[in-house]
């Protein structure tokens, strides 16, 4: 009898030990994984505060710490110059293009989504299905054609052509329509139709129902979709690279790539400062909206 009790006791303590051992191992793995995940960030922070501005001599704790790189980034250091460094302009261009694209994109898609969600008409299902089919072929796969199209438009109306932000925004708008209409429609479908039906009975027309009822209810999700769209546009490189060709017109991502041309290692610290300033707002947005974004992910809103 006592034998069984002893065995049981030993077994229990060994299970407990096993469990603790397991947690310890997992914590060690966590440390390694976290090191992998944040090392580039720490490295770039350190680089940005290393006055030496060189890839070759940089260490994790900067040897000669200072804010020289930030001064160089904003052209405040007369001893450092490189090409056409217009950091503020690039950042402003990025914010401008992403902001305008987001506001226009969300407005246009939300209005369109209303028709798909609330009206019943011939052609509704075929159009919805085609939208899904089209987003299989995003316009970046048709890069050459998009470039030619914008260049041709520019030969007729220069303000909409190559090297203009309007041209770039139009391409972004066209490319995101299909997916976003589906997304917004999906959310709109979750708003019960009884609400707008009773409003219709009271004599409201569609536009009134849309602006007075649906939009206020959709506001939180529209803000999330808007922020995701902003982040996506802000981070785009390819279209901006192809369609813009003046340094003063570049978006931040295109501008940052300029650092890699020639001797990247001699501009490393300044690049680090620029990368950090460019990334911080987006990182903040993500952490502030973590829950909404994760919610969006499981519904299929993929950042990539």
């Amino acid at each position: 009898m006592s034998n069984i009790a002893q065995t049981y006791k030993r077994l229990r303590s060994s299970q407990k030990f096993q469990k603790r051992f397991g947690v310890a191992i997992r914590l060690i793995i966590a440390v390694i994984l976290i090191a992998f995940s944040i090392f580039p960030v720490l490295w770039i922070v350190s680089a940005s505060f290393d006055n030496a501005n060189s890839l070759a001599t940089q260490s994790l704790i900067p040897a000669n710490a200072g804010i020289k790189n930030y001064q160089r980034l904003f052209n405040l250091d007369p001893n450092f110059s490189f090409g056409e460094l217009n950091y503020w302009t690039w950042l402003w261009n990025s914010i401008k293009v992403s902001g305008i694209n987001t506001v226009l994109g969300v407005s246009i898609t939300t209005i369109a989504a209303y028709a798909f969600s609330r009206l019943r008409f011939k052609g509704r299902v075929p159009i919805l299905k085609s939208l899904l089919l089209i987003q299989v072929f995003p316009n970046l796969l048709a890069l050459v054609a998009v470039f030619t199209l914008v260049s041709s438009i520019g030969n007729i109306v220069p303000a909409l052509g190559l090297n203009t932000h309007t041209g770039l925004i139009m391409v972004y708008l066209g490319g995101s329509m299909g997916m976003n209409i589906w997304l917004v429609k999906g959310y709109m479908d979750t708003i019960p139709r009884d609400i707008d039906e009773s409003a219709h009975v009271d004599g409201a027309n569609d536009w009134q129902v849309f602006t007075k009822l649906i939009l206020p209810l959709m506001r939180p999700i529209l803000v999330t979709i808007g922020i995701l769209s902003f982040i996506g546009t802000y981070g785009d490189f390819l279209m901006a690279r192809v369609l813009l060709n003046d340094s003063s017109k570049y978006t931040l991502m295109v501008g940052l790539q300029l650092f890699t041309a020639g001797q990247f290692d001699k501009k490393w610290g300044v690049f680090a400062a620029g990368a950090l300033i460019g990334a911080l707002p987006i990182m903040l947005l993500y952490f502030l909206l973590q829950d909404q974004i994760v919610g969006g992910l499981t519904r299929g809103a993929v950042k990539g």
């Binding site: 246009i108 209005i111 209303y114 159009i127 072929f137 316009n139 048709a142 054609a145 066209g174």
Partner: peptide
């Protein structure tokens, strides 16, 4: 309701594919 959205889609996504 969807005219503007479809116009952008046709012009900058569908047309480039055929082009």
């Amino acid at each position: 309701w969807m005219a503007l959205g479809l116009a952008f889609l046709v012009m900058f996504n569908i047309y480039p594919i055929f082009f």
